[in-house]
């Protein structure tokens, strides 16, 4: 985890706990050890939960499979957030009457969402006949699912796809298919409506509810100046609005250089 990743996560946790509710981190053994080493497990008021991804899922191709596995572990309706997403206000009222909510819908851009027939799959794998492949994908950087039965069906189909997938090079398309395209297809098949905070991508520019690093992480990863600026902004925001979290951040070795 790089400095900007940690800064964004701490700010995200602070903001979510203030405006929306308690948080829990799902982490594999390595990630949990990393947080424990820095004494950060308790910034999540519901703690840090250990979980694992089935071994027959390729961790390189399906790098976000953990999200699906973690989702199935929550017993009550919950919001699942990516660690690079910050929610700046309460979203409780907006989710009150929703069965499934995602942060935004996406277009069927074939660069990101190629035809499913192009995936190399196990011989015995078949896409369910009831899937409508023309449903727009749903970005699950934020995902809320009310019904456990629907959640289980989504997770089951997603994991089934991941286990049957024989792609070994492509680190994008199979993953986003399993995560973001199966969800709305399963929903439509089961007659469940999927609500989005932003229906069109253009709306994301104008909204003031979320910060999502998304592809900008790549720039922060390789551009040191950008990274420094971003981390300092996060720390400054914590200092002004979330002093308790700032105190935790300021005590970390990682952020020492940014506080000079």
């Amino acid at each position: 985890m790089q400095d900007h990743d940690l800064a964004c996560l701490m700010l995200s946790v602070a903001a979510y706990e203030r405006y929306n509710g308690r948080t829990r981190l799902y982490a594999d053994a390595q990630a949990k050890a990393w947080f424990e080493e820095r004494g950060l497990c308790d910034i999540f008021s519901r703690g840090c939960e250990l979980f694992s991804v089935p071994e027959d899922i390729d961790p390189v191709v399906f790098w976000a499979a953990g999200k699906l596995c973690a989702l199935s572990l929550e017993e009550e309706p919950a919001v699942m957030l990516d660690t690079d997403l910050i929610v700046w206000r309460s979203i409780g009222k907006m989710l009150k009457d929703k069965n499934v909510a995602v942060i935004h819908r996406e277009e069927l851009n074939p660069e990101i969402y190629p035809d499913p027939g192009s995936f190399a799959m196990a011989e015995d794998y078949r896409y369910p006949a009831g899937w409508d492949f023309f449903v727009r994908p749903a970005n699950t950087a934020l995902l809320f699912i009310r019904e456990a039965s629907f959640r289980d069906a989504y997770v089951k189909e997603s994991l089934r796809f991941m286990k049957a997938c024989r792609e070994h090079q492509d680190r994008l398309c199979p993953m986003v298919f399993a995560e973001q395209r199966i969800l709305p297809m399963v929903a439509k098949e089961r007659g469940v409506s999927v609500w989005a905070f932003c229906d069109r991508l253009e709306q994301l520019r104008e909204q003031s509810l979320f910060t999502h690093l998304w592809g900008h992480k790549n720039v922060l990863k390789y551009n040191r100046d950008e990274q420094k600026g971003f981390v300092r902004r996060c720390l400054d925001r914590m200092r002004r609005e979330f002093p308790e979290m700032y105190a935790r951040a300021a005590a970390l070795y990682e952020f020492g250089e940014y506080l000079c």
């Binding site: 700010l11 277009e107 910060t211 999502h212 998304w214 971003f230």
Partner: peptide, 14 residues
Amino acid sequence: RRIIEELGYGLDLI
């Protein structure tokens, strides 16, 4: 999508 994905969104909110 290209622009938003590459730049992220809401970064000015921080």
